[in-house]
Amino acid sequence: MSSKQQHILVVEDDPALSDAFSIVLAKEGYDVTIAYNGKEALEKVKNLTPSLILLDLLMPIMGGKEFLQKFKNEHDVPVIVLSNLDSRSDIQEVLDLGASRYMLKAWASPSELVKLVKETVG
């Protein structure tokens, strides 16, 4: 499958950020779907199997950790966590829950994000 057909699910509650990620990834040829919290994300994956999920942690209704827990039980899609939480314990927890990579939002520039996505799904 060529990268041009890859679908990415962006789970992020801040609209400015989710739009930004969406724009950047679209520019790189990916299809992007946005969910604003964990619950919405779970809904979306019922009908759609993304190649990659970009997951924020701090979200209302259902946060990233809970989503990850529920999602990873049934799916094997790579998840990149994009968060501002930077404590070792948080990072470790997330990795234990099945996330492939962890990136600090505050330090991720668009090109770095793209680089990471390409590394993970091609």
Partner: peptide, 22 residues
């Protein structure tokens, strides 16, 4: 501080897009 971080991160993305040629 935490709340400031979010919009600041947003700014980084958009300016980054411009700067990095997107």
């Amino acid at each position: 501080s935490h709340q400031l971080r979010t919009p600041a991160s947003g700014v980084k993305q958009y300016i980054g897009m411009l700067l990095q040629g997107f």
